[in-house]
Design a protein around this nucleic acid. Structure first.
Length: 550
RNA sequence: GCCCCCGUAGCUCAGCCGGAUAGAGCAAGCGACUUCUAAUCGCUAGGCCGCAGGUUCGAGUCCUGCCGGGGGCGCCA
């Protein structure tokens, strides 16, 4: 019996109890059963009686007793205790609990998927690195979290598109082109230009493709630098992200919205909604109507449209493409933008609380031996995604970034996250997976396959602990999706790996010495395989490899 | 001044819709390798959940105020 099935059974008992007049009250829409922290409290616990007590007008313990009496009638439930203020502690029969293993093996890759977010069309925008420089460590945190979220939301049934916005319009691009040109000419980079060794690399690449560059009039040459520089930079950004196993469905160009007239359309639309006004020669959006602390400029007095205008157009474009939830993942240094974004949404006639979600990620630092790592050959003062992957690898890098809540400012110690031992959670979880594979290979030597399944033999408390942990996975994925919190997957996997290792130490799969192969051995092979499935599915959601051997 | 995030064990952090005796890893100490790969496991020790109020059967969790730390407040993108 899975926890979801048990929840249905308990709910049924509550409804039946009310119908039969055991106690009064309104049954809740759904019942939650959870794994108690303390194993002595049974396999599962529920607080439904505590929640019912008020409407029943009776002490929670009395309600609990009445529900318990009904549950005890149920096949597959071995025991029900009323504890504390009115908790119901439920112990399942071994065969009933053991069925989880078979269900998981049969569901295979599909185990953990749900329809919790079915029908939702979610747009996930993250990284959105400017094509004027490499992907840096701040982006990298979002690359890991955003891509995992992509996978998790899909597992929860949502239709998801990951998008990378390209700021390829405006003065920053021109500055980049001018910087490239300066370097190509052997002149110093302008004060407000782009610095770092990568600028020289890109300039060299531009020269290689356009040997005539220096013969062109300066304006034309800068334009060539801007165009080619952007192309090269974008290609390198894609390569870096792809190497980090991060893929986007859509690379969305800001410039394309200007040239196609979408920005003008958006301005018209906002004007029609009555939130646009002209002042000081500029065009403004009255974002203060919606909680912003000051109004924002859409078109500057020199006629140029702002980044903000493009963002309004981008939001409208997303909505036009049918997304009902638009998620923006921003660094903490951009949180001031949230108010403006909400105002755009409100000015467009949407409810920001419904269609807009802004996730703010706190800053990341990398330290080595207690010193912050800043030395980047490529970018001068920042650590790039490529530097990071070179230092720690993709698996350790992704896992280390994804296992922390985005709300936590993060300091990663290089020595700690690359250490190949049990104090490194990445390897702890990966090793557990490798161990399941090895145990399976070993069992096969004894002729143990997945044929006989006798769950009533799974009576060890270590099996109960493992089986209930395995049963939690779908709920963990659904919660991670709902809370946009990939770190919950990682924490769950660490817990599961520990539970598996303990089980492995106490419950042999293959027989020892000359002992004969028993049905218990064969049944444990299912438990082992179910664990492998969950570890593999969980690691896949984090974009981390599940190795066969370590 | 205003806004966002954080404050939980020596350290780094989990803690979902408020629920039972607040958890994990590391670090410290002790123990288990003739192993299903010890990249593992067992045990010990470690807590005014920043402070003060409030809400209620019940608060680490929700509300208010304060203290401490980090970040942000352009006709830049």
């Amino acid at each position: 019996m899975t926890p979801a099935e048990l929840a249905t059974v308990v709910h049924g008992a509550v409804v039946a109890g009310v119908a039969a007049g055991d106690f009064a009250g309104t049954p809740p829409d759904a019942v939650v059963v959870e794994r108690p922290k303390n194993r002595e409290h049974g396999d599962y616990a529920t607080n439904v009686a505590l929640r019912m007590a008020k409407s029943a007008g009776r002490p929670a313990r009395e309600v609990a007793e009445a529900i318990a009496a009904r549950l005890r009638q149920f096949d597959g439930i071995a025991g029900v205790d009323v504890a504390g203020p009115g908790f119901l502690n439920i112990t399942l029969a071994a065969d009933s609990l053991g069925m989880i293993a078979q269900a998981i093996v049969e569901a295979a890759d599909g185990y953990g998927r749900s329809d919790a977010l079915a029908g939702r069309k979610v747009n996930l925008e993250f990284v959105s690195a400017n094509p004027t420089g490499p992907v840096h460590l701040g982006h990298t945190r979002w690359a890991a979290i955003g891509d995992s979220l992509h996978r998790i939301l899909e597992a929860a049934g949502a239709e998801v598109a990951a998008e990378h916005y390209i700021n390829d319009f405006g003065s920053q691009m021109t500055k980049f082109g001018a910087s490239l040109y300066a370097v190509a000419r052997g002149r110093p980079v302008p004060e407000d230009g782009y610095h770092g060794d990568y600028v020289a690399d890109v300039a060299k690449a531009v020269l290689a493709e356009r040997p005539d560059l220096l013969d062109l009039p300066e304006d034309d040459a800068v334009a060539v630098c801007t165009g080619l520089g952007e192309e090269l930079m974008l290609r390198s950004i894609r390569e870096s992200l792809s190497r980090f196993r991060v893929e986007f469905e859509v690379w969305f160009s800001e410039r394309s919205m200007h040239s196609s007239g979408k920005v003008d359309d958006a301005l018209t639309r906002l004007r029609e909604q009555g939130h646009v006004y002209d002042a000081d020669g500029a065009v403004w959006l009255r974002t203060t109507d919606f909680g912003d602390d000051k109004d924002r400029v859409l078109v500057r007095s020199n006629g140029e449209k702002t980044y903000f205008a493009a963002d309004a157009a981008y939001y409208l474009d997303k909505r036009g493409r049918g997304f009902d939830t638009c998620v923006y993942m921003l660094g903490a240094d951009h949180h001031g933008y949230v108010g403006r974004l909400r105002a755009i949404v409100a000015c467009a006639g949407d409810d920001p609380d419904l269609t807009l979600e802004v996730l703010i990620g706190q800053l990341v630092k990398l330290v080595r031996a207690g010193e912050e790592v800043r030395l980047s050959k490529r970018a001068g003062t920042i650590v790039t995604l490529d530097d990071f992957v070179d230092l720690v690898g993709v698996d350790a890098g992704r896992y280390s970034l994804a296992r922390w809540s985005a709300d936590t400012p993060l300091t990663l110690d290089i020595a700690e996250i690359t250490r190949r031992s049990n104090d490194n959670p990445v390897y702890y979880v990966q090793y557990a997976h490798a161990r399941t594979r090895n145990a399976r290979r070993n069992a096969e030597q004894f002729g143990i396959g997945l044929d006989v399944f006798a769950p009533e033999l799974l009576t060890s408390p270590y099996e109960a602990a493992l089986l209930t942990a395995l049963g939690d996975f779908p709920a963990v994925v659904a919660t991670a999706a709902e809370l946009r919190a990939p770190h919950r997957i990682a924490r769950y996997l660490e817990d599961l790996a520990g539970t598996y290792h303990r089980w492995y130490d106490h419950c042999r799969i293959a027989p020892q010495g000359d002992d004969p192969v028993t049905d218990l051995n064969r049944t444990r092979a299912w438990v082992n395989e179910a664990t492998r499935v969950v570890l593999a599915n969980g690691l896949r959601l984090l974009g981390v490899h599940a190795p066969d051997r370590m």
